[in-house]
């Protein structure tokens, strides 16, 4: 029993210590904005590995998610004789929820895990301490460009996901199932609000991008410098990102759309 209490105490202390390290780490990363502004090339390379390489999985998933929404939505709506509402159904669910959330989950799996593994290996092979020896700040030089690349890529990726999804829904709904083309778009335009729906969706994706990249980079930076440590850190990145994304999504949705 005593042992259990001891364990509880020590694990609470470790997790608070970790949260503290993560916050300091974030502050340090943000100061790297100066380095990124001076050397945009650093950011560009990372935009390639974080954004461009995630582009394909995001667009293909978006297409299929949109097509499934088109099919499922049509089946449900046709029971009520309101197939023409398919456009608003597909677009609202993509823009408000699925776009930011699914993109963020894919982003954590594709880019986040890669970032953690990369940073973790750099730490394990003592490249980061090597940079410190040369009086180069590894956080500003290595971490910050990756952070800003992730932060900038997520809203773009989420917007792409939603756009491709809406086109996928159009492909299935209008192309295969015979929903009227005009009402697909006009119902969407009449019922989606620029501020309430689009801007809130973009805000969500910015928040998710921020949190996911932060978690990925911190787990890599904080990993034990061994092969096992890196593998554990990568797992933690994906798991913690998923929790953070889904939990934050609920909070953000409650603030934006629910009158709580």
């Amino acid at each position: 029993m005593l042992h259990f209490i001891q364990q509880l105490g020590s694990s609470t202390r470790t997790s608070f210590a970790k949260l503290g390290r993560a916050t300091l780490f974030l502050g340090h990363t943000l100061t790297g904005a100066v380095d990124v502004a001076i050397k945009p090339r650093l950011l560009l390379n990372q935009l390639h590995s974080v954004g461009v390489l995630t582009f394909l999985i995001v667009t293909i998933s978006g297409l299929f998610v949109g097509m499934v929404l088109g099919l499922q939505g049509y089946n449900i709506l046709s029971d009520f004789g309101s197939e023409e509402a398919l456009g608003i159904m597909v677009a609202a669910s993509l823009v408000r929820e699925l776009g930011p959330v699914v993109t963020a989950l894919l982003f954590a799996g594709r880019a986040g895990s890669a970032l953690t593994a990369e940073i973790g290996l750099m730490k394990a092979t003592e490249q980061l301490s090597g940079m410190e020896m040369m009086a180069v700040d590894p956080v500003n030089r290595i971490i910050s460009p990756r952070f800003f690349a992730g932060f900038l890529s997520m809203p773009l990726l989420a917007a792409l996901f939603s756009m491709v999804g809406i086109l996928g829904g159009h492909l299935v709904g209008v192309g295969l199932l015979g929903v009227d083309d005009g009402s697909y778009w006009s119902q969407m335009q009449a019922n989606l609000d620029f501020y309430d729906d689009i801007v809130n969706g973009v805000i969500k994706s910015i928040v998710f991008g921020f949190v996911t990249t932060w978690i990925a980079l911190f787990e890599g930076y904080d990993s034990a410098p061994t092969a096992e440590g890196v593998s554990r850190a990568t797992t933690r990145t994906v798991v913690n990102s998923a929790f953070a994304i889904l939990g934050l999504d609920f909070i953000l949705t409650a603030m934006m759309f629910g009158d709580i």
Binding site: F55, A91, V95, S153, P155, L156, L157, A159, L160, S162, M163, V164, I166, W185, M188, Q189, A190, L192, D193, F194, D197, I198, G201, V202
Partner: peptide, 15 residues
């Protein structure tokens, strides 16, 4: 492409 998507969402999807 990302910016095009954002424009698409604001112009074509929401009015």
């Amino acid at each position: 492409a990302g910016i095009v998507a954002l424009f698409f969402l604001s112009l074509q999807v929401s009015n």
